[in-house]
Amino acid sequence: MSGGEPLIRWDWIGSHAGYLAGLAGRHLYLSLIPVVFGLIVSVPLGIACTRWRWVYPPVLTSANVLYSIPSLALFLLFIPYTGLFSDLTLIIPLTLYTLSVLVPNVVDGLRQVSAPVSQAATAMGFGRLRQLLQVELPIAVPVVIAGVRIATVSSISLVSVGQLIGNGGLGVLFTDGQQRIFPTEVIVGIALTVVLAFAADAVLVTVQRLLTPWARTGRAAA
């Protein structure tokens, strides 16, 4: 560190505010799209796993095996198909990662429906599909959102790794700050990532409370 250089140069932050906001926006986009895609895949997969019990073990194992592959390796694996700078090179692997959290949570969520509740639904004349849409999925929501929160935070932290293949949102601050030996950039990168994670989580908690006022958990003060 050069003499007299402060750890954080506030003036740099001030003069780069627009640039930083743009990076944060892009970072958020790159981390949230995989969660959305992950949900789109996990919900039907989770439903299949509860309808046919034998489907669940192979699906869960596959999701976990995918999750155990280091992220950088998985990104590199996709480059030949999706291209070096394409968003898809990042989005597809991150989507696959979310499955190891989302599929089990969808399954657990659907299992929250107690036997008396599903018997009552059947006895009252719900058809299969209607029971799924109006009883089982709504009851699964709190547990599914709990999974979405974990997937979102982990996705936000993983996007930075994408900078190593040239596309990583706030990750650019880490590579650039390191090359220029400019700690302000690294620290700002860390701080913004943490702020994004907290903000996204807070939004999801709020969404859950609005969506499931009937859930006992998380509303002890009410």
């Binding site: 018997q119 009552a120 006895a123």
Partner: peptide, 15 residues
């Protein structure tokens, strides 16, 4: 739908 059904644990829809 034309036959009412009541069970021990009520089985109310929690949501």
């Amino acid at each position: 739908r034309g036959v009412g059904y009541v069970i021990q644990q009520a089985g109310l829809f929690p949501h």
